[in-house]
Design a protein around this nucleic acid. Structure first.
Lengths: 115, 115
DNA sequence: CGGGATCCCGGTTGATACTG
DNA sequence: CAGTATCAACCGGGATCCCG
């Protein structure tokens, strides 16, 4: 009865970081190289980008292709599984965009009432 | 240019906890009392349930109704905003359910290859 | 260029005990 | 029943330096 037995919690855990969803969205547009991703998801640290990418790859959501050039070049892209996940994420993204103002308003109201 | 200016990150931050989504789903079925929620989301600590509920209420996603009985009874339910959010979440939930096995398989493959 | 290794801090979480 | 208070542990994440 560990955490992995609950699909929701197990899958969500991987997306719970601050960065996974942003990275998946960037890769949904087009494949990105490491440095491109770093700029696309501005203010992610090199370390967290590396770690998050490895987790996503481990879960079979993204591909990692090394081109043995000098200097090296690594391309990341979505797998079929990853693409199908992003599709289910898009409604939530749009909701976040559309209702961000309402949430911020609710927060202000709540905080004011608490004071 | 703080974090709240990005709708995705701001909204996701609230759901990134381990518990928010589970609670929202439980409340989507029907309103729950505190103790019911605690059993529904088994192995959440009392403390985290309290904290998460307050955050969700602060964001305008759930309602909190106190019935001044003895002993006290508090009912939580979804707001309209909350219900609309859950609707956008459901595709992702179903995806998690359907693809949990695939993800676990990918993980095993990745870990085996790394060894 | 694309990482890995290390250090370290601070917020989040859990256990436990107490309360109206 | 539905919380609040306090304390300790943990771990996500940033900074920095190094490497092929």
């Amino acid at each position: 009865m560990t955490i992995e037995d609950c699909p929701i919690r197990d899958v969500l855990a991987g997306l719970s970081g601050k960065w996974s969803v942003l990275i998946l969205l960037a890769l949904d547009e087009r494949p990105h190289r490491f440095g491109e991703l770093r700029r696309a998801v501005s203010d992610i640290s090199q370390r967290m980008l590396t770690l998050t990418l490895r987790d996503l790859q481990r879960d079979g959501l993204i591909t990692r292709t090394v081109h043995p050039t000098v200097p090296p070049s690594v391309e990341y892209g979505l797998t079929g599984l990853g693409r199908s996940l992003v599709l289910t994420l898009l409604p939530m993204i749009r909701w976040a965009d559309a209702n961000h103002a309402a949430i911020r308003g609710a927060r202000r109201g709540f905080d004011a009432a608490a004071a």
